[in-house]
Amino acid sequence: MSSQKISLTINGEAVEAEVEARTLLIHFLREQRNLTGPHIGCETSHCGACTVDLNGKSVKSCTIFAVQADGGELLTVEGLANGAELHPLQEGFYESHGLQCGYCTPGMLTRAYRLLQENPDPSDDEIRIGISGNLCRCTGYQNIVKAVRYAADKINQAEGAD
């Protein structure tokens, strides 16, 4: 069995681990790192429940091998909050009822996090296109868009106040 050492940063913490080459990033995160925020949904890169942020880009961790993240910087939903203080996106999903069953939520949050880095003031259409790789089977898209909008407004107001 060919396994190899990888080192990467996960949610700001330096991590070293040994993985089989065939270990998918999502399995590494959930099973070896106990980071069960990223979910396994379709396993075929359609649903986006496994979305994480790798080297400043949203990716689907079910379709990347853990070895490919070697040397990288990774953010999962567990890294969004600042201690007990929710990230504005998490607060937005809470305030705007942006989730029902919650299965898609970690992927929605990490994708929306990167979307707001790329486009801090997106229109509703841009939000919809931006999260088009994330499926919600409770069909809660209206409130998800509102939640992202809430977060964008809150972040922009805070920055305007600085």
């Binding site: 890169s45 986006g48 949203s58 990716v59 379709t63 994708r111 790789g133």
Partner: peptide
Amino acid sequence: IADPQVRNC
């Protein structure tokens, strides 16, 4: 083609 996450790869 595909969606934003997939297009990143």
